[in-house]
Simulated scan of single mutants.
Amino acid sequence: MKIKRITGTSVTIPYASPVGPYVGRGGGSGTLGGAGLIVKIETDADVVGWGEGTGRFETDPNAILSGKDVANIEGAIAALETGGIGKGPMSGIEMALWDAMGKGADLPVCKLLGGVVREEVDFCACMGLKAPSESAATAREYMERWGFRFLKTKAGDDSQQDLQIAEAIQAAVGDEAILRPDANSGYSPEEAEVTMRKMKDLGIRYFEDPCSPEYPEALIRCRTEIGMGILVNMGVGTADSVVNLLANEVADMLMPDPPAAGGVRPVMKGATVAGAYDVPRL
C-alpha cells in the first residue's frame, strides 16, 4: 500500500465554559480554543488514514513521501526529519500512517504496536489558572459533569496564589479526585522546594515541572526529602532527550507529548529507555 496524497487542515475548536477561556502560565486573557493540524493520507488502495498533529507544513510532505510504503513508518520519520518537517506536523503524518496501516490490515493500531496494555485509561482535566473559588467550582464541575478523577491547574507565576488555588480545590474535592498542579518549570530551585513542602502539607501528591530539570539536585530533594511525586514534561521528547533526566533521577514519571517527540513511535522508544530505569511514562 503506497502513499498517494497527504493533506493537512488547520482547525480550531472553541472551548466551552468552564474549559475556556484557558489561561496558562504568564497570564493574559487566555485562549478561547484548541488548535490542531488534521492530516489526511490517501493511498493507492483507497484506504484513508487520519491523524492529528500541531503546527503546519513548512515543507510539502508529498514531495518527500508520495509513492512510499505506508508500513515503513521508521523510514517516513527519517525522511520527514531530513526534509525539514517539524515534529508537530510530523506527528500528525505518523498517526495517519498508523491509521491507514491498521485499516489496511483490519487490525486496531494497538495490536500493530504490540497488543492491549490496559482496558481503561484515566484522563486528566486541565483548567488553567483561575481564582481559588472559581478553581474549586470548576474542579467540582469537571468531576460531576464529565467524571474526571484527575485534575490539573497551571502554576508557576505566583507560588502564594498557587497554594491558595490548591487549598481551595483540595477542600472542594477531598479524596474524590487527585490534583496535579503544573508550574511549567516556573519556580526557582529554592522556591520549588519551599512550595513543594507546603503543597505536600495540603495533600498534593504529584506536581509537574516545579523547576527546570537543569537543577536536578532540587528535584531530587523534592522527591526524596519532601516525598513529592515529580512529573517531568518540559524537555521530554525523543529517546535521547530523556537519558539525562533518568540518569539524574529527577522524575517519578515522564510525560511526553507526541507532537514534541514526532509521533507514537518516538514516544514508544522513550518509554523503552524509561522502562530500564523503572520510570513510567504517562
Rank of each mutant, 00 (worst) to 15 (best):
T31H: 03
L32E: 12
L32C: 08
G33K: 03
G33F: 06
G33T: 03
A35M: 04
G36I: 05
I38T: 05
I38Y: 01
V39R: 00
K40D: 05
K40C: 13
I41Y: 08
T43L: 01
T43H: 03
D44L: 11
D44H: 04
D44F: 05
A45D: 12
V47T: 09
V47L: 07
V48Q: 06
G49K: 04
G49P: 10
G49Y: 13
G51E: 11
E52V: 02
E52C: 02
E52Q: 10
G53A: 09
G55L: 13
R56G: 08
R56I: 00
F57I: 13
F57R: 05
T59H: 04
D60P: 15
P61F: 09
P61V: 13
A63P: 10
I64S: 08
I64A: 05
S66A: 15
K68W: 02
K68D: 06
K68E: 08
D69N: 12
D69F: 03
A71H: 07
I73D: 06
E74F: 11
G75N: 10
I77H: 05
A78V: 08
L80V: 03
L80G: 01
T82V: 14
T82R: 12
G83I: 15
G83Q: 01
G83K: 00
G83A: 14
G84I: 13
G84N: 03
G84P: 02
K87S: 10
G88K: 10
P89I: 14
P89M: 11
M90H: 02
I93C: 06
E94K: 00
E94M: 08
M95W: 03
M95T: 10
M95L: 08
M95E: 05
M95I: 07
A96L: 10
L97P: 04
L97W: 00
D99R: 00
D99N: 02
A100Q: 09
A100I: 09
A100E: 12
G102N: 09
G102V: 07
D106N: 12
D106A: 03
L107S: 11
P108E: 04
C110Y: 14
L113D: 09
L113W: 07
G115N: 12
V116M: 15
V117M: 15
R118A: 08
R118H: 03
R118I: 06
E119N: 13
E119P: 05
